[in-house]
């Protein structure tokens, strides 16, 4: 049957195309992993082989024991987790207000948050540096947390709002008739139901804070409080030939981001539709 052969060919082409996308998406990450376990002496002789004839954990051992990367990792973790926590808390409050209240300032609040999403953050590098240095918040993780929180909170507000919107108002009203105050209804009914949404927001913000480079470069100059991106970049410019070690460090930087990605993967569509602006 011509028709069914055509259909089978179509299906094959579809699967092949999907496979191609998967390969292209994963190959750079695979290569990172591959070089990170290739012994340095084999790196040049087996440069383009798909898998080295021998593997080693030596690069990881070096990075973990003899470099500042554990420190960078810890700094990044502190900054990203704190930012995620602060942002999720603030965004939950504002998102709840937008979702559940009718008030005069609402349209202005939304407009204000949307506008801040539009203008280039690179504009703020110089003035933020000046302001933070005058109050002693450069070279400080707290300064980074403050800046990252502000950058990420508008998007998180819209994200949280979309999660609150998905919970029927009836539930709160039922709780209030059952004898709860508005706050109790929020804490006992709404919060438990938005926990997955809060986890997603946490994940989004964590990933964004974990990846930020330019402000960290500008605001941090001391090695012991560098975040991972800054540390990795200075490592690259200092020891530009230790590819195995660099890529081992890269894999380490990738791990938390991928973990959080898996956490939020389910919410990606909803999240991006809510903000539709964030990278």
């Amino acid at each position: 049957m011509a028709m069914s052969r055509k259909r089978i060919l179509g299906t094959l082409a579809h699967r092949a195309a999907v496979l191609l996308y998967i390969v292209v998406a994963l190959f750079p990450l695979y290569w990172l992993l591959k070089v990170s376990v290739t012994p340095t002496r084999l790196l040049y002789s087996e440069g383009v082989r798909m898998w080295p004839s021998k593997t080693t954990w030596a690069h990881y051992a070096f990075v973990l024991q003899n470099s500042d990367f554990p420190q960078f990792f810890e700094n990044s973790l502190i900054v990203s987790l704190s930012t995620a926590a602060v942002v999720t808390l603030l965004a939950a409050a504002a998102g709840y207000a937008i979702s559940r209240f009718e008030f005069r300032g609402k349209i202005w609040l939304i407009g204000f948050l949307l506008v801040t999403q539009m203008f280039p953050l690179v504009m703020l590098i110089a003035p933020i540096f000046k302001i933070l240095s005058s109050i002693g918040l450069t070279n400080s993780l707290a300064g980074l947390i403050l800046v990252y929180s502000a950058f990420n909170v508008p998007f998180a507000v819209f994200l949280m709002q979309s999660f609150f919107d998905a919970i029927p108002r009836d539930l709160e009203e039922a709780a209030m008739i059952d004898g709860a105050s508005r706050f109790m209804a929020f804490r006992q009914i709404i919060v438990p139901l938005t926990l997955p949404g809060m986890a997603a927001t946490l994940g989004f913000v964590f990933t964004a804070a974990w990846s930020e480079l330019l402000f960290a470069l500008m605001l941090i100059s001391k090695s012991d409080i560098s975040t991972f991106p800054v540390g990795l970049l200075s490592f690259v410019s200092k020891f530009g030939v230790d590819f195995g070690q660099m890529m081992a460090a890269g894999v380490l930087a990738l791990v938390p981001a991928v973990l959080f990605f898996l956490l939020i993967q389910r919410f990606l569509v909803q999240g991006l539709m809510a903000g539709a602006v964030k990278g």
Binding site: P168, D170, L171, E173, A174, A175, I177, D178, I189
Partner: peptide, 10 residues
């Protein structure tokens, strides 16, 4: 006490 159209069960 109120019974909602959507039931509004928690």
């Amino acid at each position: 006490a109120m019974v909602f159209q959507s039931y509004a069960l928690y």
